[in-house]
Design a protein around this nucleic acid. Sequence first.
DNA 1: CGCTTTTGACCCGCGC
DNA 2: GCGCGGGTCAAAAGCG
Length: 241
Amino acid sequence: MQEQLERLSKENENIRFLLELMTSKYKILEEQLSKEKRVEQMGLFTENGSAHEYSYKRARTEVPVTKTSQIFVRTDLQDTGLLVKDGFQWRKYGQKVTKDNPSPRAYFRCSMAPGCPVKKKVQRSVEDESVLVATYEGEHNHGGGPGAFGECSASPDSSIKGGSMPNFIRPVTANNPFRPTMTLDLTLSGSNQESRRPSQSFMQDPNYNKIEDYVASLTKDPNFTVALAAAVARSITDRPA
DNA sequence: CGCTTTTGACCCGCGC
DNA sequence: GCGCGGGTCAAAAGCG
């Protein structure tokens, strides 16, 4: 018990470090983004007569930015499917074997399409084959169907007992074959005018305390370490420095 | 029979 | 211009 306790507290320390790393990375990115916004605005105001042309050209050449996020879902290794239960109904429209990963990548469109533009890609993680990586593009313009996360409740024997569980992170229930897992929303917010939000510190986010409490409870779950490590690795490697 | 999944073909952007 | 690789299409197969 003592040994296990020591191991766990060491693990907690590591996780705290990773979280701090993520937080600082987030702050750096936020600063960089606001700097870019300032530069962009200055460009628009100083170019006098050509300002309209400038913005027009930018708008035309700019790739339409869609909101993307990733979640990591731990599954049974025997489970060969690429299904991530997220409460929405999806229609599979393709599957591909990619170069960097031996497991195939499945492509899904929201079943409400073309009314709903959301797409997702699901592929097993290279680092841990039991972890499914689901990448979402866009935002649903409708509610979730039956079996949505919001309808789940904490399972009594789960090692994760959140108490006040944030809506965006839910444990797995008897209806859901997946084991408890860590879900991280690594949203890449767009840089176009419509998606701009007022600059807000991560620490000032109204959900921050809830997230912190919940993450603290998650550290009791050994599965959490793997999922977090994968998420942090991605957050570092997938973003511009 | 209608809807969903599978899978090979096709398209398109990117790097060389 | 060409090849490569990721993403999408669409016909065929599967399934309830």
